[in-house]
Simulated scan of single mutants.
Amino acid sequence: MDRLANTVRPYAWGSTTAIPDLLGTAPTGEPQAEMWMGAHPGAPSRIDRGTGAEPLSAVIDAAPEAELGEATVKKFGPHLPFLLKILAAGAPLSLQVHPNLVQARRGYEDEQRSGVPIDAPHRNYKDANHKPELVCALTPFDGLCGFRAPGESAELLAALEVDSLEPYVDLLRAHPEEAALREVLTAVLTADPEEMRVTVTEAATAAGRLGGAHAPYAAIAHHYPGDPGVIAAMLLNYVQLQPGEALFLGAGVPHAYLNGLGVEIMANSDNVLRCGLTPKHVDVPELLRIVRFEATDPGVLRPEAAPDGEELYDTPIDEFRLSRYVRPEGAAPLTLPASPAQILLCTAGEPGVGQLTLAPGRSVFVPAGENVTLSGAGTIYRATVVA
């Protein structure tokens, strides 16, 4: 078992205080958006087994079956198949979707053949993997997830009484679900930028005046004035998670995180297609090919009781399995069964993990087959795979 030294990513949308508050460190004044735990090449965690700190990715590369487990390597290859994060949103993230596995492989191969540099700002596919993800709230957490029913979106837009939105309202009311959602999103993202800027400004002003169900979109527009993603966001379900609740985001589901602190886990990928709320590249044709144009229930997840006090967030993905242990004062020590490689993250208290004590925001990597005993009080998130 190894303590992890993790990298914090300073993306502009990050909170300046949430991650420092969790870690018990002083804020720097700069945004601290994500803390990565895992072996992603973009920011691998580091461990020290007595010969100096080295990337977890290099340790796994040197002995993948010993570190990950034979079954994991056979199923997913010689790489840790998930990435665990602490995510701290102080402003809305970009409105985005992720490809499925077939789409990711095809898109990556096409861009490789075309010679698009891997770090090019217009590159869509940084790897050949899909990116299903799960976010679990540590504080009240707001987000957008999946399309609303077209009729609901029509009513939300109509209440703004903005003349330039009336064609979208008519489309949403008159067309079948898939056609309505596709046509409106396409129209929003391909509209004249100056005309759309005016529309968004008028819509944001009206949303601020109306409040209620419109208030989240006025707040989004405050961060992204004139961005067409503000109108696209009104097509989506607004979701408020309470601590312990979670959202699962599958392929093709448009979503954005708006505010709050959470634990996020995903397949080990960086493939993102953006719809708006960003100054970054938006590839409209490729986006429209990936998006699933269907109204969905966001499906808020709550942990399900499993043996030995484990609480499991059940998802249809094998690359990751997220659960937690909420241990009260006086709880008896508990030995976790041997499993594939896992990462244990403390979010509250100071529980014992083997011979180590973890403070909030600290984590350990546990190689495959190694038993771990939990002791003391606190909350521990456990990330592993379904192998």
Rank of each mutant, 00 (worst) to 15 (best):
P193S: 14
A187K: 12
G262A: 13
A26G: 04
A267T: 04
M35L: 13
V300L: 13
A207W: 00
D318V: 00
G352L: 09
G330P: 05
L322G: 05
V97Q: 05
E304N: 11
G146L: 00
T190I: 09
W36F: 09
N6E: 07
L273D: 07
G250V: 04
N129Y: 12
H214C: 14
N271Q: 07
V102F: 06
L56A: 08
R382G: 03
Y168H: 13
E67C: 13
A104R: 08
P225W: 13
V97D: 00
G50K: 02
I60Q: 01
I220A: 08
P20Q: 03
H79Y: 10
L172A: 02
G226L: 01
G262T: 06
H79C: 08
R106V: 12
R324W: 02
P333W: 02
A43R: 05
T72F: 05
M1C: 14
L134C: 04
S114Y: 05
S363Y: 00
A187P: 01
C346S: 14
S164L: 06
Y381D: 07
V282T: 15
G378Q: 02
A218V: 09
T335Q: 14
F76H: 11
A158D: 14
N259C: 13
G38M: 13
V184N: 03
E183W: 09
F293G: 05
I47F: 01
L165G: 09
G52E: 12
M35F: 04
Y224E: 12
